[in-house]
Design a protein around this nucleic acid. Sequence first.
DNA 1: ATCAATTGCGTAATGCTATAACGTGTGCGA
DNA 2: TCGCACACGTTATAGCATTACGCAATTGAT
Lengths: 131, 131
Amino acid sequence: MNTPQLTKNQTLVFDVLTKAEAPLSAYTILDKLRDNGFRAPLQVYRALEKLLEYGVVHRLESINSFVACAHPNEDCHNHGLVAFAICEGCGQVIEFHDHEVDHRLMDWLKSQKFKAEKATIEIRGHCATCS
Amino acid sequence: MNTPQLTKNQTLVFDVLTKAEAPLSAYTILDKLRDNGFRAPLQVYRALEKLLEYGVVHRLESINSFVACAHPNEDCHNHGLVAFAICEGCGQVIEFHDHEVDHRLMDWLKSQKFKAEKATIEIRGHCATCS
DNA sequence: ATCAATTGCGTAATGCTATAACGTGTGCGA
DNA sequence: TCGCACACGTTATAGCATTACGCAATTGAT
C-alpha cells in the first residue's frame, strides 16, 4: 500500500511516535499532543487507524501500544510477518522479519485451510543492556 | 509447573472456559458465574492469574480473551512456544506448537542477546468452514 | 497450642483502553 | 451546484484491568 500525504493530525501522531524511544499508548500520545490542540482519544485513534493502514506504524497487542515502523523506507506489507522483541526493562522494541518463520507458519495454516489475515508475534523479555 | 488442586473459584472459571467453544473475555466469564456467587471482576481475574500460571489456560492478547489449553494432559510450559489461529468468523481457536518456529525465533533472539520470557503468536483470519 | 506468614476471598472504587453516535467543514467530480 | 467522501471535533459510553482495604482459612515453625 502506498502512503499518501499525511493529514495534520496524522503527521502529529506519527512525529510523536517517531521521536519516542519506546512504544506509546494512545492516551500517552494524546497527552503529548494537548498543546497541539488534541482534546479527545478519538483524534489519536483515528490517526493511528490510518497510519496502521499505511503500514508506517505497528500496534503492539500485548502492551496496548503503538510504535513507528523501524523500516520507514521499505513497505512493511511486503515483509510478510513482522515480529517484535519488547524489553520490559527499557521498553525498547526490536523489530524483525524472518521469512523462515513466515513460511513455516503459513505452511501450517495452509494445511489447516486457515486463511490468515493478520499476524501478531511479540516476544517479551529483556534486551542485552537490561538483562 | 505442576497444577495443584484448584480452589472453588478457580474450578468454576476453568469449567466455564473448558465448556466454551470460543475464547471468553473476563467480563463474559463473570456474567456466566453470577449465579455461582461471582459479583466482581477481580474474582475472575484472580482465578485466571493462577490458571495462567499453571498453564491450563492461555490468554489471547489480540482479543483480550482467555481460552482453556487444548492439551490438558501435557504441560504447556514444556511445549516451548504456543501459537494460535483465531477465526474471526466463528471465534474458534486452533492451538499449535512448532519447534521449528520456536528454534528459529530463539536463535534470532540469542543473536540479539535478548532474554525471552514470554511469547505471543496469534494469527487472525478465517478457518476452513468460515472462509 | 500458639503465633506469624501465606493464601484465597469479597467489595468498592478507580484507572486505562477503545468505540459509538452525533454533527461540521472542505474538496472534488458528475 | 449537487452529492459524495473524507477528515475533523465533541460528548458520551462501553469494555478491560487493577489498586486498596479488610476478613477468613491454612500452614508450619517454635
